[in-house]
């Protein structure tokens, strides 16, 4: 808006009145263009959210025909008093704070390796992208079959080598590490591609200058590559952190939250409470807790990043 208005007034000096009218017309057309999408998005955010909010403060249970009562914060306090809430919170945290850093490490290694070859980079990048392009449901059942303790190929191979492999997704100790590994498998490609974009942004003369200065490989990595990739790694981390709250499909297919409740993250716990037990009051409260956690977590990370990058820029100048 601001960049059009001055040219109008300058090119037609006497027409202050007309410029004003044109500006009003432009504002109107902007509204007309935006309205359909914004009305749809607003309606579809607020309307279901109103139901969610209402449910979370009542004793809403679909299967049981009891009158719905206003229970205030009961759903929230009951949840927070239960062990299952805290264990599912812990599992969500493991996906966010263990799986995501592993993805960054693996993605960095892969991106460096692909960037170091001179031919066929794009072909490797395309092939390594495959796990991320697939539906999570396919990822889930490929791994379910691959890791099957009886007729799966991985355990057959390990047994033939003389190991005694665990039952992976079905074993109490290995179920969670298995899910984390599958999540890392699926999302390392995204980190890889972001860091490849980062590596491509480093001009070759930077490396030449480093070589002239007698910097060895390790020094070049820590003093040049890593700092220049830092903004890309931050973006990868934030994107993956936000998405780590969404992990659901692979849990549903590989473990159903089990054995017991050992692999239920907040998303799966919410689904279980809402759609196996039809306790929409508690499920609604759980949803709202997740929303708050995600907003707070993202804000904290983003503000930390902004502060650090501001400090970094101040220091280098």
């Amino acid at each position: 808006m601001t960049d059009i208005a001055p040219t109008l007034t300058i090119s037609r000096p006497p027409a202050g009145e007309r410029a004003k009218r044109e500006k009003a017309a432009e504002r109107r057309s902007t509204m007309i263009l935006l309205a359909p999408a914004l009305v749809f998005l607003t309606l579809m955010s607020i309307w279901p959210f109103a139901y969610l909010l209402y449910a979370s403060f009542t004793s809403y249970q679909l299967a049981i025909p009891i009158p719905i009562e206003w229970v205030g914060l009961d759903n929230f306090t009951k949840l927070m008093g239960g062990a299952r809430f805290w264990s599912s919170l812990g599992i969500t945290a493991i996906f966010a704070l263990v799986a995501v850093p592993l993805q960054i490490l693996a993605g960095l290694g892969l991106a460096m390796l692909i960037n170091s070859i001179s031919r066929g980079r794009e072909i490797y990048a395309s092939l390594f992208l495959i796990p991320m392009m697939l539906a999570p449901i396919i990822v889930g059942f490929s791994w379910n079959l691959f890791l099957n303790p009886i007729y799966g190929p991985l355990n057959a191979l390990l047994r033939s080598l003389g190991f005694q492999p665990p039952a992976w997704a079905q074993s109490p100790e290995w179920a969670l590490p298995t899910l984390v590994a599958v999540d890392v498998w699926q999302w390392t490609p995204l980190v890889m591609i972001i860091l490849l974009a980062g590596l491509r942004s480093i001009p070759p003369r930077v490396f030449e200058a480093a070589k002239v200065d007698g910097s060895n490989r390790v020094q070049t990595f820590f003093n040049i590559i890593l700092p220049m990739l830092a903004p890309y790694m931050v973006v990868a981390f934030v994107l993956r952190f936000i998405d780590s709250f969404k992990v659901f499909d692979i849990i549903y297919i590989l473990t159903r939250g089990g054995p017991g409740t050992s692999t239920q993250n907040l998303a799966y716990y919410t689904y279980d409470v809402g759609f196996s037990r039809f306790q929409f009051g508690s499920a609604g409260a759980l949803s709202i807790i997740q929303l708050v956690l995600l907003v707070v977590g993202t804000t904290v990370i983003l503000s930390a990043v902004r502060r650090r990058s501001a400090a970094g820029e101040g220091g280098s100048r």
Binding site: F49, L52, K246, L266, T270, G274, F280, S287, Q290, L291
Partner: peptide
């Protein structure tokens, strides 16, 4: 996360 709007 889709689990948030899905109940609503």
């Amino acid at each position: 996360p889709p689990i948030v709007p899905v109940i609503g």
